Simulated assay, not measured.
Amino acid sequence: MANDAGGGTWANRIGFTEGQVVLEIGWDEDVEDALRENVEDLIGSALEEDQFDGVVDAVLLWWRDGDGDLIDDCVDALAMLADKGFLVVLVPKAGHPEHVQAADIEEAAKTVGLKASSTAKAGDWIATKLVQGGHQKQR
Rank of each mutant, 00 (worst) to 15 (best):
P97E: 11
H96P: 08
D76I: 04
V55Y: 00
A79M: 09
R36W: 12
S118F: 06
I25K: 11
L90M: 15
D104G: 09
A46C: 04
D104Q: 15
G134V: 05
G7H: 01
S118V: 12
C74N: 14
P97D: 13
D33T: 11
C74R: 08
A120N: 05
E40T: 03
A82D: 13
D76A: 13
D65H: 13
H96R: 10
N12R: 08
S45V: 08
A34L: 14
E48K: 07
I105M: 06
G66D: 06
R139N: 15
H99G: 01
K93Q: 13
E107G: 13
W125S: 13
G26N: 10
G6R: 08
E24T: 08
D72R: 07
S117E: 11
A109G: 07
A77Q: 01
D83P: 15
G6Y: 02
W27L: 14
L61R: 07
G95R: 09
K93G: 03
G133L: 04
L47W: 06
L60N: 01
H96M: 08
N38V: 06
E98L: 08
D65Y: 12
K93H: 06
V55L: 05
R13V: 09
E37M: 05
I43K: 01
R64W: 10
F86T: 10
G19A: 02
M80F: 05
A109D: 02
A46Y: 12
L70P: 02
D4H: 02
R13M: 05
T128I: 05
K84Y: 09
V112T: 07
E40R: 09
G133C: 04
A46S: 12
E32Y: 11
A5L: 11
A2F: 09
A94P: 08
D73L: 13
S117Q: 08
G123E: 05
A2V: 11
D72C: 04
D41Q: 10
D104K: 14
D73E: 15
M80V: 10
V88F: 13
